[in-house]
């Protein structure tokens, strides 16, 4: 459907623009301001130019080393959870019951983890994984696996990953389910007449139809895992050592822990820039996918 060109539409958008600009642009200017200065407390600031940015991007300094290490950890984390959650989410969506009261039940239970405050998610897994009082930790240790997420790096990683899978796979599953629901029955009937195998139905009908929602799912999951803070902070506190210190945790440590405003601000800007670039790439792919589909539709 063609949209009419009407610049008066700006009046309708204005409240949103002002509200978000107030919450986004003013704080961002503060960050830019801090990132170019150094402070020794007492609200005295000194011009520091691009010094913080140079330090940030140089792995041999303390700040640069910490930034790159946490960035790297975060990228691995995002890759791992995407590799687990997307296929698992598709499988769960395909396993949804077809009709009846079980559909509502499954939907409600699936959505449940999404509505739990993030620190409570952390608390749940902190308790659940403890060897002394948690079911998971207790059972694992009972069957002879030495599991302790507080002291062992690998166990800490496993806990954080399983927690994220627990927390967010439902989102992918619900998105895929919404995509599957939009496939008309005629497609399946046609496939049946053609004698298509189960796998062929999946690759030729279901996957292409889920293409769009999957893109949204990957975008949301990548972004949210890239800025994950609360859950690992509650469970592991970024440890043992620095092994689960992701970028946001590192940032809050520098900003609110050490009150190193300049360093934190420079880190924030680079962090934001990475997110902006990824977001733009996805947005372009999404709008292109939408534009390709439009003529086919009508």
């Amino acid at each position: 459907m063609e949209k009419t060109i009407n610049n008066k539409a700006w009046f309708l958008v204005l409240p949103v623009f002002l509200l978000v600009a107030f919450s986004a642009i003013i704080p961002l200017m503060t960050v830019v301001n801090y990132s170019l200065q150094d402070t020794f407390g007492n609200n005295q600031f000194f011009w520091n130019g691009v010094g913080w940015f140079k330090e940030l991007l140089d792995p041999s300094t303390d700040l640069g080393g910490r930034f790159l290490a946490s960035l790297w950890r975060n990228l691995i984390f995002s890759a791992v959870i995407l590799a687990i959650e997307v296929p698992l989410g598709i499988v769960v969506a395909l396993s949804m019951p077809r009709s009846g009261w079980t559909v509502a039940l499954c939907l409600v239970v699936l959505a449940l983890p999404l509505l739990i405050p993030w620190n409570v998610v952390g608390t749940i897994w902190q308790i659940f994984g403890r060897p002394d009082i948690g079911l998971l930790g207790y059972v694992l240790n009972r069957i002879g696996i030495d599991y302790n997420y507080v002291s062992n790096e690998f166990d800490a990683w496993m806990t954080v990953i399983v927690m994220d899978v627990w927390h967010w796979t439902s989102l992918v599953a619900l998105l895929c389910y919404a995509g599957l629901k939009s496939i008309p029955d005629a497609y399946y009937q046609a496939a049946q007449i053609d004698g298509a195998s189960r796998w062929a139905v999946f690759t030729a009908i279901q996957l292409p139809k889920m293409h769009r929602v999957l893109l949204i799912a990957v975008l949301l999951r990548f972004m949210d895992s890239f800025m994950i803070y609360t859950e690992p902070f509650v469970v592991t506190g970024g440890g043992p050592g620095n092994s689960t210190t992701f970028i946001s945790i590192e940032l809050v440590k520098i900003a609110l822990g050490q009150f190193d405003l300049g360093k934190a601000a420079a880190l924030s800007l680079v962090y934001n820039l990475i997110i902006l670039i990824v977001c733009w790439v996805f947005y372009t792919i999404m709008t292109n996918a939408g534009a390709e589909r439009r003529p086919a539709k009508k």
């Binding site: 986004a24 803070y229 946001s248 809050v252 900003a255 924030s268 934001n272």
Partner: peptide, 17 residues
């Protein structure tokens, strides 16, 4: 796009400002 990019901005960046 600008609106959308704000949805993706990490809360940790905005905490202090």
């Amino acid at each position: 796009f600008w609106l959308l990019s704000n949805r993706m901005a990490p809360a940790a960046v905005y905490a202090l400002p």
